[in-house]
Design a protein around this nucleic acid. Structure first.
Lengths: 208, 208
DNA sequence: CCTCCATCAGATAGTAACTATCATGAATGT
DNA sequence: ACATTCATGATAGTTACTATCTGATGGAGG
């Protein structure tokens, strides 16, 4: 995404470009330091220095230290893809279809972006504070999902069946990705098949 | 486990009794102050002073400020009750049975204890940091649950069907209790019927 | 090109949640 | 009664975060 100043598509303005660059720099330096010394081993001050900004600026871009790890667009993207699925699919089918689509999106990333993603995910799962906040994000995202599911099913968003569906999907994704804690070198896309399988069991009423 | 020489149930020793008293005092004063001024409005120092201990002592009893809200025995108790259910029940039936039992336990509490529980739950759901940590506790608790379920189903604990089951139950309980955020005056036992119903839908393969 | 305005970056000072360490005194076991 | 264990309090420090002020910079209009 390092575009020159020449007009490409639409020029978002110099200011905006600078901001995007600063944000990327902070996040990248943060990941580098975290990888090098661990999450607690790198202070916000260290990161700010490495990214050549002041600590004030760090907090202007990321309200908390955890956010520098969590910040991404994939949750939102996954949600969009889910909502865009053809309405004749059942919610579970739509969820599985969305899952397959996102796999393709991730495959198209550059190697550096992939590496960044890997580190981010590893930290998300291994650093307790970060993980805790991430789950909150998940809950928030799936609140939106509930509305989509409700519309799809022709029921109110607070219908208990809709809520149950959404809760079950959250929970299943959560535990399906949990092995990441043991082996943070793996990428989260490795778990897409497991999630898919788990959704299948959900559909069958949790056979044991 | 805690093999003191005294016969169980009687005279846990002066030291232990003092500790229990101190812990209870800290938690009680904390809840009083939180109710009065809000979670952020009462510092650890304030709480320590109100409980007539030093800040050092506060952290000796509760490793973080959040823990003073989260600390309880109900998760563990619920787990024990679940594991004690007769083996001929299916895991979902056992979960529902355990849920009914815990309702009885809570009914037997004194009014003050109930009030303490109410405040604790309200804070757990309304204060983001506390809630985030609570979910971590949940995940930890349900890791133990997975072992129980696995034994019950005659499968390994890392079996994907077992994990899916556990994840679904976590998720369903999570969203079932979510209305507490909107109305923190309600007790969590009010939601037992909703959880029970949700578990029923789970059993039916999430009809929509 | 110059000017005004909105905004963004940096610096400073402060708060609050922790952590580490050490000396004191109380509880306990002999 | 004595030695040991261990909870407590005090002190000093680190770090994440907040508030506020001042100076710099990009963008828009004349």
């Amino acid at each position: 995404m390092t575009s020159s100043e020449s007009v490409e598509g639409r020029a978002p303005g110099l200011r905006e470009r600078k901001k995007a660059k600063t944000r990327a720099a902070i996040q990248q330096e943060a990941m580098r330091l975290f990888l090098e010394r661990g999450y607690d081993g790198a202070t916000v001050e260290d990161i700010a220095e490495a990214a050549e900004v002041s600590p004030s600026t760090f907090f202007r871009y990321f309200p908390t230290k955890e956010d520098v790890v969590l910040r991404d667009d994939y949750d939102e993207l996954l949600l969009e893809i889910f909502l865009a699925q053809p309405p004749e699919l059942t919610p579970l089918q739509a969820a599985r279809a969305a899952l397959h689509s996102i796999g393709g999106v991730v495959d198209a990333l550059s190697p550096e972006e992939r590496e960044l993603e890997r580190v981010r995910m590893a930290l998300t799962f291994t650093v307790p504070e970060v993980r805790a906040r991430w789950i909150n994000e998940l809950v928030r995202a799936f609140r939106t999902l509930a509305e989509g599911v409700a519309a799809r099913a022709g029921r109110p968003a607070d219908d208990i069946r809709v809520r149950t569906f959404v809760g079950a999907v959250i929970g299943v994704m959560l535990v399906a990705m949990e092995p990441l804690v043991e082996d943070p070198t793996r990428e989260w896309t490795d778990f897409l098949p497991a999630i898919d399988e788990a959704l299948g069991y959900l559909e069958q009423g949790l056979p044991l």
